[in-house]
Computed example of a mutant assay.
Amino acid sequence: MAVTLLNIGEHLSLEFEPSDLDEVQACIDARYPGRKAMAAGIATVVSFGGETFTYQNEWDDPCLISSSNKGDELLRNIYTELSGD
């Protein structure tokens, strides 16, 4: 699985392949039960672990974008688990 963690402005974005979506969701669900998603225009607002993220999948390039320091920490934890780092 190829995942990347990028700095986007002041926060982080977890980037992955469309074929890895199920594995990313399974990782989130195992670590942070109660994930919720709600469509918001061209994006989806996803909540888990007490934080809110923006999920986008433009041009088959999915990403999960944090909007807080705590969200950045959650994305780092997910990245570490999925990348094997």
Rank of each mutant, 00 (worst) to 15 (best):
V45F: 12
I28W: 03
F48W: 08
P18E: 11
Y55G: 00
Q56F: 07
S19P: 02
F48M: 06
A39L: 08
M38E: 14
G49T: 04
S47I: 03
K36E: 10
E51H: 03
E23S: 11
Q56K: 10
F53V: 06
D29N: 12
E23R: 11
P18H: 09
T44E: 14
E51P: 03
D29V: 12
Y32P: 03
A26K: 13
Q56N: 13
K36Q: 04
S47W: 01
G49M: 05
K36R: 13
D22K: 11
A30R: 07
F16I: 13
S47T: 11
V46S: 06
A30Q: 10
A40Y: 12
F53C: 04
P18Y: 13
C27S: 15
Y32D: 01
I42L: 14
P18L: 12
V45K: 15
T52G: 05
N57F: 03
D29H: 01
E15L: 10
I42D: 15
A26N: 08
T52P: 00
R35S: 07
Q25T: 11
V45Y: 10
G50C: 06
F48I: 02
Y55K: 02
C27K: 12
D20G: 05
M38G: 04
E17I: 05
A40G: 04
A39K: 11
R31L: 15
C27Y: 00
Y32C: 02
A37F: 04
A39H: 04
A43T: 15
R35V: 08
Y55C: 03
V45A: 08
C27G: 10
F16N: 04
Q56L: 09
D20Y: 11
Q25D: 06
T52L: 02
G49P: 05
L21D: 07
E51S: 06
E15P: 06
A26T: 01
A40W: 15
F48Q: 02
G50H: 01
D29K: 09
S47A: 14
P33R: 01
V24S: 07
Y55M: 10
L21A: 12
